[in-house]
Amino acid sequence: MLEINNLHCELEEDTDVKILKGLSLTINPGEVHAIMGPNGSGKSTLSYVLSGRDGYEVTEGSATLEGADLLEMEPEERAAAGLFLAFQYPVEIPGVGNMTFLRTAVNSQRKARGEDELSAGEFLKLVRAKAKELQIDADMLKRPVNVGFSGGEKKRNEILQMAMLEPKMCILDETDSGLDVDAMKLVSDGVNALRDAGRSFLVITHYQRLLNHIKPDVVHIMSEGRIIKTGGPELALEVEENGYGDLLAEAQS
């Protein structure tokens, strides 16, 4: 599904700042991978480079989604190709209603893929059902995108977007941070409901707790722009208990 090979990137405005330094990763259809790693190791940067945010220059390596070169595409083309990023910090957009935003997003992607747009009625029915599962009330749907939402509400709104867009490759950047216990359960249920043989997930998190709900197939440890260790779910437990100290030392030796 997603194949990243020896990816290097630096900041466009300051090319001395190298962030990704040879990152490789392969996620097969249906798999859930988790990435853990210290603050500043480049996890969010990886998610931005994959989704096409300006400001990063890829100097080496490749990233493909189902064989298609992601790095050559505009952000909207990547979205239409099935890539989805649940942002670590969802953006507030005053003046744009959440519903308008969702409908425009769904229909833009359908149009880009040559599918028929959803009618107003079909869309409404769908969004109501999905919002209900995530306990997002009608008021939140009417308000401007993320404006005045609590931290947890913003994260649930990200998952709602994911549920509506039905992407193939979902990247969740610290979707668990700022969530209370119940919200964590809601969000995880939302994610698990989407798990499917044709859909893959890359879950970036600092806490093993989320991985109790969303069970990963593979866990990667990232440090200074590359993957330093890959293992099964037990790797997350190890980090939870001992921190990154031993793993980092091991990687350096």
Binding site: E74, R78, A105, V106
Partner: peptide, 16 residues
């Protein structure tokens, strides 16, 4: 970027 990452073409995102 947020709008484009959700699939809105650049023109449409700007218009919005």
């Amino acid at each position: 970027f947020y709008l484009r990452a959700r699939g809105l073409p650049e023109d449409q995102a700007k218009l919005l």
